[in-house]
């Protein structure tokens, strides 16, 4: 129940706006001003420093004709779809955790899920890089031990065009993070007990309960995770940069749009063009978020 303030009452209520003043000033100066500056530079050939030349729609025309850029959006779309699939196991984990009868064990499990979050992200990247190492790596070691691979052969997981995307997608297996699991768990715990009782009276099995009750009732949580995941995936580039380098792996096959901006701007000095790509990412993010909110149904 919020206090409804009409325009007439503003004479008394205007100081309320002061509550939002500091965040607003911060955001205008440190978010909107740089965005505005970037937007202006879409129309310039700009190396970030001394070269600054007005070229009109040049960068926009270039974006529209850039097939490698289009490919990079294809790649990021593959990552988004893969990440949707990767949401299944965390949901199942949360449901199973919810059904653990021993409350004490349930709590201990929740704490244990959180602990790996505090390990520096770089450690995960280093270990997965080592996992895919062609000569000493874990994966080829396993394949050799099972005789799928002869002792002298090695598979170049991160330098083979066909393998680098699957390798990047598989990274982080089994993709169950505390953040997602605990949010789903929160949704599950707010399902009233009598809903379960009614279902049991009707003789509903665990699968029916999952699909007819639990899944629809945690749709709110699934949707927020879906939205955050989509935004995060579309903007992500650091992991790929750390994993396969600034060129995006063999033939740039793993280049996502974010990495492309970084490369164009910092390696090639095409800052104006980088800004143009930034706005395309923004528009795609906006569109996908709209789709998520429109088509993922939430029963309130």
């Amino acid at each position: 129940m919020a206090v409804d303030v009409s325009v007439k009452k503003l004479r008394y209520y205007w100081p309320v706006y002061l509550l939002i003043a500091i965040p607003l000033v911060l955001v205008l100066l440190f978010s909107y001003y740089p965005i505005y500056n970037g937007f202006i530079h879409i129309f310039y050939r700009w190396n970030g420093d001394t070269v600054e030349e007005f070229i009109g729609l040049g960068n926009i025309i270039r974006v529209l004709n850039d097939t490698t850029l289009l490919n990079s959006f294809g790649v990021v779309l593959i990552f988004v779809i893969a990440n949707v699939v990767k949401m299944i196991l965390p949901i199942i984990t949360a449901v199973i955790l919810h059904h653990v009868i021993n409350d004490r064990a349930g709590y201990v499990y929740r704490v244990l899920f959180v602990i790996p979050m505090i390990i520096p992200a770089m450690v995960g990247i280093l270990i997965w890089k080592y996992f895919y190492e062609p000569n000493n790596g874990v994966l080829n070691g396993i394949l050799r031990a099972c005789n799928f691979l002869s002792g002298t052969d090695s598979i170049q997981w991160l330098s083979d065009e066909r393998l680098v995307l699957p390798a990047l997608i598989f990274m982080g297996f089994p993709w169950v993070g505390a953040f997602g699991v605990l949010i789903y768990l929160a949704g599950l715990q707010s399902i009233p007990e009598d809903v379960y009782e009614a279902a049991e009276v009707d003789g509903a099995g665990p699968l029916t309960i999952f699909f007819k009750i639990e899944l629809p009732l945690i749709m709110t949580q699934i949707r927020i995770n879906l939205v955050l995941m989509t935004i995060g995936t579309l903007q992500a580039w650091e992991n790929i940069y750390l994993f396969v380098g600034i060129n995006g792996g063999p033939n740039g096959i793993a280049t996502v749009p974010g990495l492309r901006i970084f490369r164009d701007a910092f390696a090639e000095g095409l800052f104006g063009y980088g800004c143009a790509i930034g706005f395309v990412i923004f528009l795609v993010t906006l569109a996908l978020t709209f789709v998520n909110n429109k088509f993922v149904k939430v029963d309130k």
């Binding site: 001003y33 740089p34 935004i231 579309l234 970084f262 980088g274 800004c275 923004f282 978020t289």
Partner: peptide, 15 residues
């Protein structure tokens, strides 16, 4: 939240 931070790096650096 929808605007990619990487596109903002240079204008931010200037600021």
């Amino acid at each position: 939240m929808m605007y990619p931070g990487v596109a903002n790096m240079v204008p931010m650096f200037k600021l």
